[in-house]
Design a protein around this nucleic acid. Structure first.
Lengths: 160, 160
DNA sequence: TACATTTGCATCGTACACGATATAAACGCT
DNA sequence: AGCGTTTATATCGTGTACGATGCAAATGTA
């Protein structure tokens, strides 16, 4: 039988897995400057857009479960980037809010996307490729996250 | 100032990061059947091709450092999938070899790539997209990994 | 109103990733 | 030969990821 399917170079997943780690690594020097990890940066991007949001909603947007988010948010609270409060309407919900320090970090973060893009382009990665992959993969995510939903991933907002 | 760059949906990295996790999750049911994690599966794919290889070479192929590989390989040795021996030629090198059990696992793994592809296609993901992304990203990886050889990709560009 | 079920979050255990650091063997140069 | 450097691997600490499980508040239903 032909085993070419089991060769690393022919896998679909390995390139994406590696690319993800390499790109996170490309972010690191920039994120180090403002003292964030990549995941913390993602959480802040959500908060910079909304300023006040439940853990549940963050979970949906980042497709991360509470068993990842809970400790993450606790660390970020200790870093004084955000505040966590139980909702009085629904005692089960925890509301996450930016602190002043968290809000201010946006200034330091603003140049990062462009710096990263520049890094990629410096490496001879074509902008059109970047955009193309972004769109293709975004389509996958929409499809995959819907099917994975029953196990644990966040629910899409509307109940299809 | 325009902050659209800091929106999650416009990030380059977030889609790849999410896709990587979603695809790993898509593998899980199949890998569970043969008792492997995704990373262990990657290591075995390398070994199924070569049967005897140094930790260093595995590190190159998977782009994983020894601080990830060492514990990983130890766990796999405890699972009796492989054997680790110091090379007598060069006492610094550790040679990794498949055990019979590790070799036999290839049979169980053989259908996985096709099963996964089928899963993706069932989700209306187009094969041409899969192949296209694979090629595009493989190109990136070649470029990015060359620059990353040592520690990181780019120094932050600032004026000091 | 009782009580089973669902929901939102947290905790636990395991397994990566990875920067920093350690260590011994091999190598290079004088 | 002596000694600084490089190389191959390992260890440590921290931070994700995530399945399994726990738990209290909310909800649905008889």
């Amino acid at each position: 039988m032909d085993d070419s399917n089991l060769k690393l170079e022919n896998q679909i997943c390995f390139p994406i897995y590696s690319a993800s780690r390499l790109i996170t690594k490309a972010y690191k020097p920039f994120l180090d400057e403002i003292g964030l990890t990549y995941t913390q940066y993602l959480v802040l991007m959500v908060l910079w857009e909304t300023d006040e949001i439940s853990v549940n909603k963050i979970s949906e947007k980042l497709m991360l479960n509470t068993n990842t988010l809970s400790p993450l948010l606790k660390r970020m609270e200790k870093m004084e980037l955000l505040k966590r409060t139980r909702s009085s309407q629904d005692e089960r919900c925890v509301i996450v809010q930016l602190t002043e320090k968290g809000r201010e970090l946006k200034t330091g973060a603003r140049p990062i996307p462009e710096q990263l893009l520049k890094t990629l382009l410096n490496e001879n990665i074509k902008l059109s490729d970047v955009l193309q992959i972004k769109d293709l993969i975004n389509e996958w995510i929409k499809i995959l996250s819907e099917k994975t939903r029953n196990t644990d991933i966040a629910q899409p907002v509307d109940g299809n």
